[in-house]
Design a binder for these strands. Sequence first.
DNA 1: CGTCTATTTGAATGTACTCAAAAGCGGTGG
DNA 2: CCACCGCTTTTGAGTACATTCAAATAGACG
Lengths: 199, 199
Amino acid sequence: MQQLLEYITQYVQLTPDEESAMLSKIKVKKFLKGQFVVQNGEICKYENFVLSGCLRSFYIDNDGLEHVIMFAVENWWTADLGSFITQKPSDLNVQCLENSEIIQIHYNDLQKLYFEIPKLERFFRIIIQKAFVAAQKRIVSNFSMDATDRYIQFREQYHDIEQRVPQYMIASYLGITKEFLSKIRNKLTAQKGDVSNGV
Amino acid sequence: MQQLLEYITQYVQLTPDEESAMLSKIKVKKFLKGQFVVQNGEICKYENFVLSGCLRSFYIDNDGLEHVIMFAVENWWTADLGSFITQKPSDLNVQCLENSEIIQIHYNDLQKLYFEIPKLERFFRIIIQKAFVAAQKRIVSNFSMDATDRYIQFREQYHDIEQRVPQYMIASYLGITKEFLSKIRNKLTAQKGDVSNGV
DNA sequence: CGTCTATTTGAATGTACTCAAAAGCGGTGG
DNA sequence: CCACCGCTTTTGAGTACATTCAAATAGACG
């Protein structure tokens, strides 16, 4: 709980009253590795704040292929926002990749909190803005960089995440096949390791 | 002006006082076709609401290639949000594709308005949420659909925009070359037009 | 140690790109 | 009214980046 309040404090200063109003509306929940926090076809009723653990959200296309949209670790928010804001069935799945501890805020409670505490509206405006900018940057990266450079960028940006999730999910996040990522990694380590026949 | 207020009313109900507070902080500006509303390297100082006309925002990569990130027509917002929220130099350009009339809100004024009118904070939270969901959907489309299907989807979703902007910018928006889009269009009209040798 | 899942390797293939050149299309001026 | 210019779109040949499929190898876990 303290973890969430500290996180919020980075963006807005809540009074003790506001903090307790907020805390009264949240619940902490534990999930096991493999469990689904959001399931395709069901309405996404909660915004989820990750206290510990690691999750992925992914989409299953018409050919049954999974596409990883994002990962979420400590102090990240995750949900199917499209389903959450419309309260219509979800297109996405959110699944735990590790045992995870998550704070959940129910849709109805969040609406009430927005009215009670305008600062919270501000808080979520700010973090969603940042998320939007990141999404837009990712679109640009996908268009302007090849798979090798995208992988290198991912490794630098999310070094912690790379260590925690299987390679084939990273490939999916990057929009390539697991086989191709494997080949990219091979090429990269060969370049670093083998000094004997540099160009 | 009325156009902006009507747009806002879709999401939040402002009092007459709030409306005039808002209007006192905005200015209407006319731009000619080709003019830049945001320029790479300069700080994006305004949020722009399009009253009339058509704009594109685009990124220039290390090889000097342009990548169209989004179009904006009547009743759309456009800016380099990354530059706007951090008030750091912009990575993007926003350029008019037609003579355009635009409402601009200065960064400092918007910060003041957020404090004066919490409902505005709510308003921007809601529209940025929608923009984020759209961006995420676009990422998924780019991964799960081929170029032909992405073009068909674009045509259905933004039929009005397709009529107004050059083909090579649509190709760029879709993440493909202008030559390849031309070939896709050819293939599609051949399928429709030529009934003689259907499969 | 065996089973299950994840990663690697290789050959054949496909989707989309590059480069170069031609054709179309509007506008402008002689 | 036609000729020319700049810009956009088209066409074609050769190529590259990434995929598919199949099989081998490596790792994790009971």
